[in-house]
């Protein structure tokens, strides 16, 4: 199928009226991938947590194709990007064969969270093979400037469990590509 990986992203955008912020978008897709949604973008750990250059490029391609609308707006001392799906994007999604029934709820849920919190959640997931105390240490050292608290880290763990319970059926994901 043509543009299968792009179609999965379009599926994520279609669930939300708008996604505000590139950082937020990066973390949402990373978290979805870690929840076993079949995104193929490769992520690496960067200064601000998991980041995928492949995802950045695909989003640029979707904008150039006219499937996504990007608005760049000045906000204080920096720029912020807002993304919405276009009519062409919706038509493309109808044509694609990608079906991920649970994705919509998970994406809407994550989109309701702050970018700061999703950065924490994605960092916890990046270190998911380490014990809780080591993850805490990693966050306090690697993310010292963000000044996350122990309570926030506990909340991140709870949030991951909640996402898994609600959107990742344990037996069969029912996803088809």
């Amino acid at each position: 199928m043509l543009l299968k990986e792009h179609a999965k992203l379009v599926g994520a955008f279609s669930a939300c009226e708008e996604i505000i912020g590139r950082k937020k978008l990066q973390k949402m897709i990373y978290i979805a991938k870690k929840l076993s949604f079949p995104f193929q973008e490769k992520f690496e750990f960067h200064f601000y947590g998991p980041y995928s250059e492949e995802l950045t490029l695909r989003v640029e391609e979707l904008c150039n194709m006219g499937f996504l609308h990007e608005i760049r707006e000045k906000k204080g001392g920096y720029y912020q990007y807002r993304y919405t799906l276009t009519e062409e994007g919706k038509a493309f999604l109808t044509h694609s064969e990608v079906v991920m029934p649970q994705l919509e709820g998970a994406v809407i849920d994550m989109n309701g969270q702050s970018a700061r919190f999703l950065e924490l959640v994605s960092t916890v997931l990046y270190f998911d093979t380490l014990p809780y105390e080591e993850v805490e240490d990693k966050i306090f050292t690697l993310k010292r400037k963000q000044r996350y608290t122990k309570e926030e880290i506990a909340e991140a763990y709870e949030y991951i469990e909640q996402l898994k319970k609600q959107y990742v059926p344990s037996s069969n994901t029912g996803w088809s590509q």
Binding site: G21, K23, F47, Y48, T56, E60, E61
Partner: peptide, 18 residues
């Protein structure tokens, strides 16, 4: 072009990259 392990310079406007 997204299927390539090389990248351009990114100003990291939203702290997605340093």
């Amino acid at each position: 072009s997204s299927d390539l392990p090389y990248d351009f310079y990114r100003p990291g406007e939203e702290e997605e990259r340093l």
